[in-house]
Write a protein that binds this DNA or RNA. Structure first.
Lengths: 362, 362
DNA sequence: GTGAAAGCGCTAACAA
DNA sequence: TTGTTAGCGCTTTCAC
């Protein structure tokens, strides 16, 4: 068993340094370093000896020393709003796996969609000297954090954020996402194709989620193109866990919506539960569609109708892009990954007559 | 706007060091350090001057330097099987929040329940010189990683793992979890109280999940105490996403179970979906209970019957305990947090006659 | 092929 | 109160 041993009294022998390995192997620290990293020329015999001694001593290189010297950490900072939402957790898993396969380490911070938390978290990560950042910010178009990163030339890649919206300029901020506008429009077109005409949108707060806004714009576009009137969205704080009174309001109107397009799956699933609590059947009386494609949506019955983002793939692509930027490669434009529609069972053909409205559909 | 500015050509002015701040402020680096950390005595005027210069220069302390010097990183390593399972993601969120509030940073690694990945990941975290580790291992009773940490005196806290099972010795490995045995027994007792007699268990593979085993032992205990015979559990790899053939097997037997106790929610929800796919009604024909209490279980209808663990709280408690251990406080025994039963709608009174069996219940 | 020495950025003795 | 200096562990010139 390799040293160091615990000293029995609870304290512990200090981890051996390269110096001690050098002493034990009877060579200089330079030689040890070269042998360990297979850098520079080292005699085979010497190298073997050093390696043997290092293993025997349980030597474990101290990355602080190495990184300080190299002014490079092989650490990627990750800053996300929350891990309680599966979409971010799954993305983080993708990031972590890909980072691991490139011998990178990740440092994770969550911000709860709060700009001041973004400020603090990014600062801490920069103090750590992460080589680059993967992050989702509340509003990528007006973000002091991104301004800072730009000003300091810190490489970063946005995930889920889609700055520039429908017209992402090639010169703009690097991001990896789906085309939220297009996806939103397609989902609403699907709802319209089912015969719905009064489609309403429930959305995360735009100030905290630019993608939510893009999806809404897609909704608007689809409605307008079909010659239908769109309504102001119901903006829902991401902390909301009960939508019943809002839904009662919405569906108690004279011309209540027959379909609800929710800007994320969490919202959609909450809505479905609350609708059922209110005695409304989904999709028979109200159709509901979400956005994200989190795995749990498939466990519902009926399966959640939603836009599926390649969440883990977004994370992996972000790592790849970030590593390119860190390596100094030129930014060639965002990675717009493909989404798909999952035509589950929570949105169906519009019923002939909606139960809640006193006015028949046009 | 603080320096450094980007140099226009894409390269970037190096971040200023304490040395440069010292030069600009006309003092020594020691004074800058003292002023910045409010350590030692510094004249008010000097301090103000230093702080002003530091801000103006956009100085950001390099934690590698600080940590190398302090042989301490204020970084907690976190090693979990996967973030795709909400129970771990929510726990990580709890860890991150609590760590942040103690000015600690976290480094995250996932292992996919693979022992060799645990080995590699822990080694990387130790090379990073994390101050301690929060981790879930496949088998806490026989873990080379934990043996290593013990041997080297690295502080760590297990989450979800419950080494020692029903009799955790005070001297044993530090952990934070619910009492999996007790919780499993109580859930099965609940099923029995609903009139079920043939309860079967579906479990994650014991080799990859000691909690799964504890929950099974609880099942055994409840069955035995009621004078019923327990069956071998159906062990399910955590990668399984379709249980239909297994369920057909199980329910096609002569005396099929009327209730299924699943060792985690993910499994339970998959099972419920697959049962419905097979044309079986839940809970009318088969009752299903889970374990974990992930949020999405509440979005199902009916709501998932399950054991609710205080997942985020487990994460927070783990951080607190780990920080105590790092501070050198003596380990006073595990934190066994309280679970609750969520009596949702997926488990109900046993039907008089089960449809699938040819043999009537005793 | 190997070693001596400088230095990455910071803190903490020790001096003044 | 402030400055000088050593050194945390490592890599990398530059000699030899």
């Amino acid at each position: 068993m390799p040293n160091p041993q615990p000293s029995g009294d609870g304290s512990v022998a200090k981890a051996p340094t390269i110096k001690e390995v050098a002493a034990a192997a009877g060579v200089s620290v330079a030689t040890v370093s070269r042998a360990l990293n297979a850098s520079g020329a080292v005699h085979g015999t010497t190298s073997a000896k050093v390696l043997a001694v290092a293993r025997q001593l349980g030597f474990r290189p101290n990355l602080m020393g190495r990184n300080l010297r190299a002014t490079r950490t092989r650490t990627l900072g990750v800053m996300l709003p929350t891990l309680n939402h599966p979409v971010f957790a799954e993305c983080l898993q993708g990031i972590e796996t890909q980072a691991q396969s490139h011998q990178q380490v990740i440092a994770v911070s969550t911000t709860g969609y709060q700009v001041d938390a973004e400020e603090r978290a990014s600062e801490r990560l920069l103090q750590q000297r992460v080589d680059g950042l993967i992050l989702t910010v509340a509003d990528a178009a007006h973000s002091s954090v991104l301004d800072k990163l730009d000003a300091e030339g810190v490489p970063y890649v946005l995930v889920f954020n889609q700055p520039g919206g429908t017209q992402p300029s090639l010169a703009a901020r690097p991001f990896v996402s789906v085309d939220n506008f297009l996806a939103g429009r397609q989902m609403v077109e699907h709802l319209l194709s089912l015969g719905h005409q009064r489609v309403h949108m429930l959305a995360g707060q735009f100030q905290q989620s630019d993608r939510s806004l893009q999806r809404f714009l897609g909704y608007q576009a689809a409605m307008s193109a079909a010659g239908l009137t769109w309504s102001q969205p119901l903006e829902v704080p991401f902390t909301t866990c009960d939508m019943r009174s809002e839904l009662q309001d919405l569906l108690g109107r004279r011309s209540p919506p027959t379909a609800l397009f929710c800007s994320n799956d969490q919202l959609a699933m909450t809505v479905i539960r609350d609708l059922r609590d209110l005695g409304l059947r989904v999709p028979e009386q109200v159709s509901v569609a979400g956005f994200d494609g989190v795995q749990v949506g498939e466990w519902l019955s009926p399966v959640l109708t939603t836009v599926v983002q390649p969440t883990a793939e977004i994370g992996r692509a972000a790592v790849d892009l970030l590593l390119q930027l860190i390596a100094g490669e030129r930014y060639l434009g965002p990675a717009l990954l493909h989404h798909t529609l999952r035509l589950g069972g929570t949105a169906s053909q519009r019923a002939q007559q909606h139960q809640a409205g006193s006015v028949p559909p046009p």
